[in-house]
Simulated assay, not measured.
Amino acid sequence: MLNELSYREIYAAVTECKGADFKIQKLKIREPIGDEVLVKIVATGMCHTDLIVRDQYYPVPLPAVLGHEGAGIIEAIGPQVKSLSVGDHVVLSYGYCGSCTHCLSGNLTYCEEAFVRNFGGKDQNGCNAICTHDHVGVNDHFFSQSSFATYAISRENNAVKVCKDVPLEILGPLGCGIQTGAGTVINALNVRPGSSFLTWGAGAVGLSAVLAAKVCGATTIIAVDIVESRLALAKEMGATHVVNSKEQNPIEVIKQITNGGVNFALESTGRPEVISNGVEALGTLGKIAVVGAPRLGVKAEFDVNNLLLNGKTIMGVIEGNCNSKWFIPQLVELYKQGRFPFDKLIKFYSLDDINQAALDSERGITLKPVIRIA
Rank of each mutant, 00 (worst) to 15 (best):
A300R: 08
L266Y: 02
D123H: 05
I24S: 04
G45S: 09
A188Q: 01
S195N: 10
M315P: 07
N157Q: 11
A300D: 10
S276A: 09
S85K: 13
V227R: 05
A289P: 10
V185K: 14
S154A: 14
D123C: 06
A232T: 14
K164A: 13
Q337Y: 08
F342K: 01
F115T: 10
Q330I: 11
E4P: 04
G177Q: 02
A289V: 12
T150D: 00
M315Y: 08
Y57G: 02
T258C: 09
V279F: 14
G177Y: 05
R271P: 05
E169T: 06
C111T: 07
E280A: 13
P193Y: 08
K18E: 02
V210G: 05
A281C: 15
K122Q: 06
P167Q: 10
Y58P: 03
D55A: 05
K347L: 02
S147Y: 04
F348Y: 06
A20V: 12
R192N: 13
P329Y: 13
G137C: 12
C127S: 06
S144E: 13
G87N: 10
K164S: 12
S85C: 10
N158V: 08
I74C: 03
V166R: 09
F142R: 04
F119T: 01
K23E: 13
G206C: 08
P369R: 04
L233T: 03
I257L: 09
V317Q: 00
F264G: 12
V332F: 10
H48L: 03
A300I: 06
F143S: 10
Y11D: 05
L174S: 04
E333T: 03
R8L: 11
I29Y: 12
C176T: 06
A239G: 01
P250N: 11
F142G: 12
E280T: 13
A114Y: 15
G311A: 15
V243M: 07
W326H: 09
G320E: 02
G175W: 14
L367W: 06
I288G: 11
N323K: 12
G70H: 01
S350V: 08
E36C: 01
I178Y: 00
G106I: 13
V291L: 00
V136H: 08
T240H: 12
G106L: 10
L171C: 06
N244T: 15
T184F: 06
D88R: 00
T180V: 05
T184A: 06
A76H: 00
I221S: 08
S361K: 00
Y94M: 11
G78Y: 03
S276N: 00
L92F: 13
G137Y: 12
R271N: 13
C127K: 14
T49A: 01
R230F: 07
L38G: 09
K40D: 06
K325V: 03
D35W: 15
T313V: 15
N306E: 03
T49M: 00
T313K: 12
T220S: 03
L331I: 05
R363L: 04
K368D: 00
L211K: 02
Y96M: 11
G311L: 15
G320N: 03
A239E: 01
Q145C: 14
K312D: 09
L62Q: 05
N263D: 14
C47I: 02
A281K: 11
N107V: 14
Q124Y: 07
F22V: 14
E333M: 04
L266I: 10
I52K: 00
F264K: 15
W200S: 07
L168T: 10
E362R: 07
M315D: 04
